[in-house]
Amino acid sequence: MTSPGTAHTARTFPAERDTTVSLRCAGRTVGRYTYRPELPDRLSPRPYLHPLTTLGGTPVTAFMPDDHGHHLGVSMAVPDVDGRNFWGGRTYVPGQGPTELDNHGVQTHRGWLLRDPDGFVEELSWRADGRELLRERRTVAVRLFADDCWALDFTSAITNASGRELSIGSPATNGRPGAGYGGFFWRTPAAAGQARVFTADADGEDGVHGRTADWLALSGAGWTLVFAGATGDTRADPWFVRTAEYAGVGSSLAWAHRLPIGQGETVTRRIATAVADGRLGRDEAASLVHRLTEGGV
């Protein structure tokens, strides 16, 4: 994918008539990105990647599963932006627990800076209560690793456009221990208890959840995902991991403390993910990490 120059401005392609973009790798369609979703307000409508598959055609994303209807494949989902919910579902209220509130925001597609079969650069607006809180530049690209492995590179640069300082939080920062989710999140189709998760030196949900690691692997029936933080700030964020209740991985922006963003300031995170056929072991997963994070896409 050709990198966009700084002189580009967001635009809408004249031929654009639908609400999705297909992603192709080595001549094969490996995913679809829905950038103008039609979703209920309580799901915090936002663009998402689904379905994504391995090169062999095995699904690696789940969309609106019965256990968590607000899990939308792969998305940027944040439960607390200045008190507004961009995650979907209930909001954790101190002293009250998860509660249905009328506080859902929406991520709105503004235009493309670049759109190719192997990726795109998009501008989005995060809005709630009729006003813009954040402006985002999102870069998504795919590349081939091998006959049985491709990589998804996802960069989110979020700028505070509210006109004042705001902060990002999570249920954990609001009093729910261990629930520091919010940021890049990937929900997989694995059944509860079916997935295996590991890092370079730890295994299992209890061993990796809430901890930092340069990379983390999650495998299910016939597939493996290897997630790697591609910047120092991203590697400093703890991983949010579930395998017992369901299978999903996220990179947490506000694990234990709220993340302040001054007016006009930008927070950037980049996650590169290898999508492989088969169940990889630790050595096989580790061998992919350097290739995932070297250079750009």
Rank of each mutant, 00 (worst) to 15 (best):
R282T: 14
V275A: 11
A254S: 14
A254Q: 08
G222M: 08
C149I: 05
E245V: 11
H257I: 03
G169F: 09
Y35S: 01
D129M: 05
F240Y: 15
G105W: 00
R258K: 11
L144G: 06
D116E: 15
T266W: 06
T6Y: 10
I261D: 03
T58Y: 05
T91A: 04
R42G: 01
G95S: 13
M1P: 15
F13G: 02
N160Q: 03
P189I: 13
R242A: 11
R282A: 14
V142P: 04
A274E: 04
Y33G: 02
V289S: 02
L113A: 04
G88Y: 01
E294Y: 09
R282C: 11
P37W: 02
Y246E: 15
H50Q: 08
G105K: 05
E165I: 07
R211A: 12
A161T: 10
R282D: 10
P51F: 07
G5A: 14
D214T: 09
P177W: 12
R143C: 06
E100R: 11
V21P: 00
A244Y: 04
A62S: 13
R36H: 04
V241I: 12
P37H: 04
R131E: 15
L23K: 05
P189E: 11
L52F: 06
L52N: 01
L23I: 08
A221V: 11
V106R: 15
G180A: 11
T34Y: 01
Y92D: 03
T243L: 07
T139C: 08
L253A: 12
M64L: 05
F86Q: 00
R242G: 07
F63N: 07
D67Q: 12
R42P: 01
A217T: 05
T273L: 08
Y35N: 01
Y35K: 01
D283T: 15
A161V: 12
D148F: 03
A77T: 01
P59Y: 02
W223L: 03
E123I: 03
A213I: 04
D206C: 02
G207D: 09
F63T: 01
G250C: 06
D233Q: 13
G281S: 10
H70T: 07
P47E: 00
L72V: 07
R90C: 04
A286F: 08
T99K: 10
G56T: 12
A274I: 09
D201A: 13
D102T: 13
L225S: 12
G163P: 04
A217K: 02
